[in-house]
Amino acid sequence: MTYINLRSDQQAAISGVDETVLRAAVRKCLDEERVGPIRGLGLSDCGPYVGTELHAFQQAIAEYSKAKAHAKRERTRQDALHAGSDLVHAVQQMKSRLETERLEGELFFIEDQIRPPFHLSKRLSVPVAFRWRASPSADWKYGQLTFVYDFSPQPSYTLPLPKRKPSAAQIARDLEASRYREWECLKAQALCSMRRFFRDGGDGDAVPEVFAVRPSPYGGGLNNFSCNFWQAERPAL
């Protein structure tokens, strides 16, 4: 699973969608009250955002085609119009993201396919590999920053108390599950912080090899600044 980079197959699918053709296909779907005209455009391969809007449009067209009463047909047609507009907008957004990634990729790239370890202890760590260069004509430089975080799960007071005391094995499983959830959160925060650093013009030579992640001083685990290795400690939001 990728977090901040589009997969190569998604990049190809997004590039292959012609917006003019898509708009015409959406209009034809409305006129013919069926989704056939948008099939074959590769929309289902453009990632989850486009996929979600595609499904919503297909559902809206299906509701419109089934409607009989005049009032319901008017309402469902408007719903289908909005869903079609949302689908086109989603493709536009993904094309914009693709172009941003292409331009940024000339200066830096952050590897976001990071597998969790087989076993997690209290000390969580996420190694993030990256490459960067000062200009598109310069040679690539490579580095890695490992984010480390001592995780102490906090008890939840919103959940009802169990009717019976959990076994030691269940407690261990729950602890392991909470560590994996926090590790995934740490990975997402680390990747986004690393991308923000380079987007803001950060120098890869200034990236440390290890960074001790700062949890919120007010409890609740990680916050928006926890993985910002280039900043002095800041208060939690």
Score class of each variant (00 low, 15 high):
E99T: 00
V21K: 15
V88S: 06
R199S: 05
D79N: 15
G201Q: 06
H119P: 01
L159G: 05
L87F: 09
E53H: 14
A177E: 14
Q59V: 10
A232K: 11
F197Q: 07
Q93W: 00
E209C: 09
G51A: 03
A188N: 13
G84I: 09
L120T: 01
F229G: 02
R97T: 01
I4G: 00
S178M: 12
I114K: 01
M94W: 00
E101W: 02
R123M: 15
S44G: 10
A206I: 09
F211M: 01
E104I: 03
L175P: 00
R115W: 07
R75Y: 09
L161S: 06
S8Y: 12
L107V: 07
D139Q: 10
P162T: 00
A129N: 06
A56Y: 04
Y64P: 01
R75A: 11
R234S: 14
P235I: 13
P136R: 00
E106A: 06
A12N: 03
V50E: 02
K68G: 14
A232Y: 12
D150G: 01
L222I: 03
G220F: 15
G16M: 03
K165F: 15
G219E: 02
P153F: 09
A212N: 10
D200S: 09
Q10M: 05
G219P: 04
S167A: 12
A80I: 04
D79T: 07
P116W: 00
N223D: 10
V50H: 03
V126C: 03
M194P: 03
T52K: 13
S8R: 06
S85V: 08
L41S: 05
L145K: 06
P155H: 05
K68H: 06
Q144H: 09
L103N: 10
F211Y: 13
T100W: 11
L124Q: 08
T146C: 09
T20Y: 12
E233P: 00
K165Y: 14
E106M: 05
L191K: 01
Q11L: 02
A83F: 06
A60Y: 14
V88D: 12
Y142G: 06
N223F: 10
D205G: 07
F130S: 08
I110K: 01
L6K: 05
L107N: 05
G16Y: 11
F130P: 01
H70S: 08
T76A: 03
H89K: 13
Q231W: 13
H55K: 15
G40Q: 04
G16C: 11
S15F: 04
L54Q: 01
E209L: 12
I14E: 11
E176P: 09
G42W: 11
E106Y: 04
F57T: 02
I110S: 00
A232D: 12
Q189G: 08
F147Q: 05
